[in-house]
Simulated assay, not measured.
Amino acid sequence: MQLDAGKRRKAGQVNLTPLIDVVFILLLFFLLSSTFTQWRELNVTASGQANDVEQQALLEIQLVSSLGDIRVADQLYAADALNLQQLVAENPNTVFAIDARDGLTAQAMITLADRLKQAGAERVSLAGIVR
Score class of each variant (00 low, 15 high):
residue 1 M to D: 05
residue 1 M to F: 08
residue 1 M to T: 06
residue 1 M to S: 12
residue 2 Q to C: 08
residue 3 L to S: 06
residue 4 D to A: 10
residue 5 A to V: 08
residue 5 A to D: 07
residue 7 K to L: 15
residue 7 K to A: 15
residue 7 K to V: 14
residue 9 R to T: 10
residue 9 R to E: 11
residue 10 K to C: 01
residue 11 A to Y: 04
residue 12 G to T: 05
residue 14 V to C: 00
residue 14 V to E: 04
residue 15 N to M: 07
residue 18 P to T: 10
residue 18 P to F: 11
residue 19 L to T: 12
residue 20 I to Q: 09
residue 21 D to T: 10
residue 21 D to W: 07
residue 21 D to N: 09
residue 22 V to A: 00
residue 23 V to F: 14
residue 24 F to N: 09
residue 25 I to S: 13
residue 26 L to S: 10
residue 27 L to G: 05
residue 27 L to P: 00
residue 27 L to S: 03
residue 27 L to N: 01
residue 31 L to Y: 11
residue 31 L to Q: 06
residue 31 L to V: 12
residue 33 S to N: 10
residue 33 S to Q: 07
residue 34 S to V: 04
residue 34 S to K: 10
residue 35 T to E: 13
residue 35 T to F: 08
residue 36 F to W: 03
residue 36 F to P: 00
residue 38 Q to Y: 12
residue 39 W to Q: 11
residue 40 R to Q: 15
residue 42 L to H: 10
residue 43 N to C: 03
residue 43 N to S: 14
residue 43 N to D: 14
residue 44 V to K: 01
residue 45 T to W: 05
residue 45 T to C: 01
residue 48 G to H: 11
residue 50 A to D: 15
residue 50 A to R: 15
residue 50 A to M: 12
residue 51 N to W: 09
residue 51 N to F: 10
residue 53 V to K: 04
residue 54 E to S: 13
residue 55 Q to L: 11
residue 56 Q to S: 06
residue 56 Q to H: 06
residue 57 A to H: 03
residue 57 A to G: 08
residue 57 A to P: 05
residue 58 L to E: 12
residue 59 L to G: 04
residue 60 E to W: 05
residue 61 I to L: 15
residue 62 Q to I: 14
residue 62 Q to A: 08
residue 66 S to D: 15
residue 68 G to L: 05
residue 70 I to Q: 02
residue 70 I to P: 04
residue 73 A to N: 14
residue 73 A to W: 02
residue 74 D to Y: 06
residue 75 Q to G: 01
residue 77 Y to I: 00
residue 77 Y to K: 02
residue 78 A to C: 01
residue 79 A to E: 04
residue 79 A to M: 06
residue 80 D to T: 07
residue 86 Q to S: 14
residue 86 Q to N: 15
residue 87 L to V: 00
residue 88 V to R: 12
residue 92 P to G: 09
residue 93 N to L: 09
residue 94 T to H: 11
residue 95 V to C: 04
residue 96 F to M: 14
residue 96 F to S: 10
residue 97 A to N: 13
residue 102 D to W: 04
residue 102 D to H: 07
residue 103 G to F: 08
residue 104 L to W: 04
residue 105 T to I: 00
residue 106 A to W: 02
residue 109 M to I: 04
residue 109 M to Y: 03
residue 109 M to N: 06
residue 109 M to G: 02
residue 110 I to N: 07
residue 110 I to P: 01
residue 112 L to Y: 09
residue 112 L to R: 03
residue 113 A to E: 05
residue 113 A to S: 07
residue 114 D to M: 09
residue 119 A to M: 10
residue 119 A to F: 11
residue 121 A to N: 11
residue 121 A to S: 14
residue 122 E to N: 12
residue 122 E to G: 05
residue 123 R to W: 08
residue 123 R to L: 07
residue 124 V to A: 04
residue 124 V to C: 05
residue 127 A to G: 15
residue 127 A to P: 01
residue 128 G to F: 15
residue 128 G to P: 13
residue 129 I to H: 03
residue 130 V to A: 14
residue 131 R to G: 03
